[in-house]
Structures are given as structure tokens and as C-alpha cells.
Amino acid sequence: MSSLYSDLITSDRAEALKYELTEEERAEIIAEIGHYENPRAASIEALKIVQKRQGWVPDEAIPAVAEVLGIPASDVEGVATFYSQIFRQPVGRHIIRLCDSMVCFINGYETLRGKIKSELGIDVGQTTSDDRFTLIPVVCLGNCDKSPAMMVDDDTYSNLSPDNLMSVLEAYK
């Protein structure tokens, strides 16, 4: 654990914050460090590596990442809270990124959002009670000639309509 972080917390708290990176995670992060001029530059990639395990980055993981990178935990926290695709709360098994930028907006975004709300019971920023889906907003997906668009996990979908939206989501269990 980084000294800066451990100085600020009691030993009980330190115990609660204990978080072990797996050997694979550590190795992946160290490999990323090799692509840059210094370890700090791998901080975003390191957080993405950690996020793969549970789908989000818990507080306890921050000092563990900081230790591998050799930078203060506060700096890792600063990065982890800045970028929108690093999740700091539990999310569902599947992430729905529904594009809300202007082209999708005029092509029916609000109708699609309403459909998700009525069918799945979640609005932007919420997770279904069965932890199946989390709906998050996303910067324009760059698919505007086939709008409205969304991503589910790593898959991109085009030309959505209230009629085909749910059959797309149905495939994600």
C-alpha cells in the first residue's frame, strides 16, 4: 500500500481497504507501463484492467493500483473520478450506452429512453433490480448516419426504433 494513503488512515481502515490485484492483473498493468515514458501514464489503462474483474472500480482498488504505478493514491483517485468510462459504483452485467447527442436526439432518443424506462424500469444512471442492465449516457457514438445508435457492452447497434430496441436487448442475459 502506498505510504501516502496508509498514513492517512487507521489500521482498521487499512485492513478494510485491503485489495489484492491478481497476478494476471499486475502483469497486464506492468506490460502497459512499458508502452509509456513513465508508469503514471498507464493509470487509465490500469483502472480499465481492474474494472474488467467486477465491472467497476471499488475504492479499495485505488491504493492497490497506486502501489503498482508508484504514484500517490490521490492521483489515481483523481483520474478514476475524471473519466466517464471508469465506473465507481456497482453496475449491471451489461452496460447500455444510449447515444443522446443531437443527431440521435432529433431521431428519437427520448422515445428510446422512454421505452427502456417502461420495459426495464431504469432511467439514465440506474441499474435494473436483477443487476442485468445499467443505462448510462454516452458522448456521440460516431454512428450518426445510422442514427439512433447505442452500444451494449462492446457491440454497436444502428437504426434503432422502439420496435427493434427490446429484441436487441433480449440477447443480453
Binding site: 503514471r40 498507464a42 483502472l47 466517464s84 471508469i86
Partner: peptide, 20 residues
């Protein structure tokens, strides 16, 4: 990257590349 439109600004992009 990990999101945020501002990363397209060239000096913000440099900070982001440096892990900031």
C-alpha cells in the same frame, strides 16, 4: 481513452496520455 469529450483538445489530450 476512457471517455470525456475534452480529451480531443490537444493539450488536454497530452495530459490524458500522461495519465492525468
Amino acid at each position: 481513452g476512457a471517455g470525456r469529450y475534452i480529451c480531443g483538445e490537444e493539450t488536454a489530450l497530452i495530459n490524458s496520455l500522461e495519465g492525468k
